[in-house]
Design a protein around this nucleic acid. Structure first.
Lengths: 198, 198
DNA sequence: CGGGTCGGCTAATGCCATTAGCTTAATGGC
DNA sequence: GCCATTAAGCTAATGGCATTAGCCGACCCG
């Protein structure tokens, strides 16, 4: 008898991933575990396996979510602007996302073992993010091989800055803002006469 | 009776850390475990605790080793050169280290919880690495606040590039070389007229 | 010779991921 | 309306791993 009212947690893949992403942001991506996700829902750990294949799959799912969110934000920021304006908006969107969602962002960084099928959607999502960067750079008149190089340089700088900031590798927040703006501005100048760079 | 000839593994903190670093390079920093280190030495896991305090401490020790090695390499590369020459040498040394020792490098990136006493030596070692970067930038006549900004930008770019490369985020190796050189060259141009940047 | 420390060990604990197999509620076909 | 199927929870069991406690032999120093 009874045991009624199981409160039917009503899990779903989406809800599980969302909770995992929140946990990653709060406690760090490395600290993410099925046990913690289960605790959030008041559910036994094995129940989660009805919705995700493994802890690794859950991590990959969080990474995919993050790449999509980040791409979306970048796109919104860059739309309707060009050159300096677009570059600053793009860069600020990027940094903003990493600051708001450090755990999710950390997930995107995880090295992909070559041939890992679980990472494939993520790679495709990353291509889309790259397209946004390309669009901004084309606004500077950069094309061809130089476009690839410039995109890599820009992504490296944003990525590196975000990570070092997240790792506490810098100092006072005010100072960090200034350094970030300086970096983006220098990039703008660099891109203005990139044409002959290679 | 017997059990003679224990082959006396002769562990030491240094040897344990060295083995851990090698393992991290081969299988990835995340895959590092006390169990694997113990297996390398043919020793029971708890024996390791006579030499390191915990897995976390071992990770921190690997990070410290890596920062020191990297700093040393950067210093050697930059000595006796200036400006463009120094910049390229520094950047190549950085990338070279990350390629040779991806696991060790990953260790250096781990976020430091503020107030973590275990991370303190690492932070001091990082300061030393920063000094090398400063030295190169001073060669461009950059000083004061701009020096801090420029150093952060440069470090971000190298760090970001290295990580994205390690994560397989780019494509063909030949192309990646070219992109890296292009980035460093662009940086050189940027630094040449950095003075008024902020 | 005798005590102490050093560097191994075994045993035990507890957390976590994962698998197997059970149960119950909803669903859909006849 | 009833049965079969499936979906979504559960408990139990397994095995890897980090960590702690406490034993024990070898070597060093008096």
């Amino acid at each position: 008898m009874s045991q009624v009212a199981r409160t039917a947690p009503g899990l779903s893949r989406e809800r599980v991933v969302e909770a995992a992403a929140r946990l990653a942001d709060e406690e760090g991506f490395d600290a993410l575990s099925l046990a913690k996700v289960a605790r959030v829902f008041g559910v036994a750990v094995p129940s989660l396996y009805k919705h995700v294949e493994s802890l690794d799959a859950l991590r990959a799912e969080v990474a995919l979510l993050a790449v999509r969110e980040l791409t979306d934000r970048m796109r919104r920021a860059a739309v309707g602007r060009s050159r300096r304006e677009a570059l600053h908006a793009l860069a600020r969107a990027y940094r903003g996302y990493v600051r708001e969602h450090p755990g999710r962002y950390a997930a995107t960084v995880r090295a992909v073992r070559p041939g890992d099928p679980m990472a494939e959607p993520r790679l495709r999502a990353l291509d889309e993010a790259l397209e946004v960067v390309y669009a901004v750079l084309r606004g500077y008149g950069i094309e061809g091989e130089g476009l690839v190089d410039a995109a890599r340089a820009l992504r490296s700088a944003m990525h590196g800055f975000a990570l070092l900031e997240a790792a506490g590798g810098f100092g006072m927040p005010r100072e960090v803002d200034r350094s970030f703006e300086a970096m983006v501005q220098a990039f703008d100048a660099m891109l203005e006469r990139w044409s002959g760079a290679p």
